[in-house]
Design a binder for these strands. Structure first.
Lengths: 206, 206
DNA sequence: CCGTTTCTCGAACGTCGTTCTATCCTCGAA
DNA sequence: TTCGAGGATAGAACGACGTTCGAGAAACGG
């Protein structure tokens, strides 16, 4: 019962976790000091898997493309586990594997012609963006069937279109885009904008 | 007791709010249906203030600079009220004033030479970044004196430097930057990278 | 066989969001 | 003046959560 930190993928609550493991609530506390440590451990596990992905990604020739792949991998790890996003938000001190992932982002940026400060800001921005968007998209109802999701979307878009087009021209312009948007695609578009800014900074160095 | 939605700036919990208002818990429920509506109302209030700022900002000649100012204003509104960030994260349906703020971002982007899809992605990325970073920086202990904060920072940096420099070159390179970083400055640096990407997309259009 | 350490369980506590009910206050109608 | 209706308030109670605690079972060396 030691390494099985995730049976049913960190079932959100302590009682359900305990119940799912067939044990009492108190048993969990013999292994971990509290919820924080539990999430810490689980996060370190996930980040461990991410590190092996990152090792492979890091060999690519293009640092910008590698950053994109790293960001996507982290994003997908977050959306696959709803608890991860919420945790990464408030996690100040990094556990070992998180550190490694962070370092991976950093090493790609080190291949660019930037000052230390620019590199720090670039990595911070990228990680913040990934974690932020991943967190936003982790919220909201889970496991809704696609058709129901589409129905809700249509409802929202209808509300959007109900606004006065003269006063809300932008809302109307992007209503279609909003209706058919895909989360991951939207995330990548934003990440590409951010990376374009980083590349620009790199190219205009000297 | 109607319009005073924020006495003591939304004191985080219902009981303290009720106590601070000198009333019982139940009284609050006569006015609002639940926590969601309470946060909704409070958010709308804050966004209302933001709209008047945005109206002024929108008159600037440079759309990119305006977006930066809008982002900063939203960011500061979030860091000033810890509950706002957490709420904006999971807020799917926007209340009126949030809609107006969103529209303000959009109208600045409409001044750029982009496709509708690019505009939608640009605004989504900017707002997501601002909300994401604002939310991250809203977490962690509040009201710590500067010296104590600096002490904790020094502790973290010491831990960073304890890593093997050969294996963690980036961590070591940016340790200094990390130690002396300012939240707002870091936020703006990332926002500028994002906006640089947007500007690039605008300039390379046609 | 005992004693210690390792591990398990569930009762109990405090806090939170929420619901429910009893009560008070205020008017206009009779 | 009395009465009742509805606006408004207070607080007890509930369930869920994270956490603490102590009583015990299991394992194991002496």
């Amino acid at each position: 019962m030691a390494i099985l930190d995730e049976s049913g993928e960190e079932a959100l609550t302590f009682r359900s976790l305990a119940a799912r493991l067939g044990g009492g609530v108190g048993s969990v506390y013999w292994y971990v000091s509290g919820k924080d440590e539990l999430l810490d451990r689980a996060t370190d596990l996930v980040m461990g898997e991410l590190v092996v992905q990152a090792d492979r990604i890091a060999t690519g020739p293009n640092p910008i493309a590698n950053l994109r792949a790293l960001g996507l991998a982290l994003f997908e790890a977050m959306t696959a586990r709803r608890w991860l996003a919420a945790y990464l938000m408030r996690s100040v001190d990094m556990q070992p594997n998180s550190m490694r992932v962070y370092e991976h982002f950093g090493q790609q940026v080190q291949r660019l012609d930037l000052t230390s400060r620019q590199r720090f800001h670039a990595v911070s921005a990228i990680v913040s963006y990934v974690v932020g968007v991943g967190s936003e998209m982790s919220q909201g109802p889970t496991g809704v069937p696609d058709d129901e999701r589409a129905a809700m979307m249509a409802e929202y878009v209808a509300a959007w279109r109900a606004f006065d087009p003269a006063e809300y021209p932008f809302i109307h312009e992007v209503a279609d885009e909003f209706e058919h948007h895909q989360d991951t695609e939207q995330f990548l578009a934003g990440l590409d904008l951010l990376l374009a800014g980083v590349r620009l900074q790199h190219e205009s160095a000297g």
